[in-house]
Amino acid sequence: MYDFEFVKPSTIAEATKALAGDGAQALSGGQTLLPTMKQRLAAPGTLVSLNGIAEMKGVCKGDGGLHIGAATPHAVVAKEAAAHYPALAALANGIGDPAVRNRGTLGGSVANNDPAACYPSAVLASGATVVTNKRKIAADDYFQGMFTTALEEGEFITEIAFPIPQKAAYVKFNQPASRFALTGVFVAKYADGVRVAVTGASNDGVFRWKEAEAALSKDFSAAALSGLTVDSSDFIHDLHGTPAYRGNLVKVLTARAVAAA
């Protein structure tokens, strides 16, 4: 790993200043960033830890639904969101393993936008608002393809606000080695319709399965999905599954999520 200067601000304002410098990079839980740095694939001059910022931690109900600080570890979300948004808590409780969940954070996961990460599907399916140190971004505008987001230089997520659905469930099919989502589907039913977000399947990263949303908005049952097809032409092809296999999983897991919601 290349060396760097380590700084750990205690407020969002300080962090903003620290990240304005050349070669500065934000560090959240580090569960993805550190392995990348070990491979010397990232070489920040300054690493700005967001783990010491109290105002970026915690889970609370507010105007936008459930507000979760970006530096909140998965394990805390799993516990504290359970009463308010059980599907989200369950998703958090299935990320990585317990040691990763004690360290990895919501903001880190969503900022990285790994195409097989779990959280982006919850953010997108919930129509959540991504709050940064500079602005608020709607989930539909935030995700811009594999490892690509609306975040600009020096911008970092401080909080995400999740509208709470009437019903929701996340069903994940593990990639057998990494235990990331080979495919994962988050289904959320709101008063004004159903949103379905899929992770792990597409080369474009997390996406909404609009046909399923339309069908489920009319009839929220697994049967409503039976006639639908999944366009898997741009799906991921790797050691663990073909596009066709992932396409099948999208359908199967969506039905299971509806049944579980």
Binding site: G30, Q31, S49, A99, N102, R103
Partner: peptide, 15 residues
């Protein structure tokens, strides 16, 4: 670390 299991190879000492 502070009572929670973590992977010490994926945490910076200074953090």
């Amino acid at each position: 670390v502070n009572g929670k299991a973590v992977k010490s190879c994926t945490i910076f000492a200074q953090d």
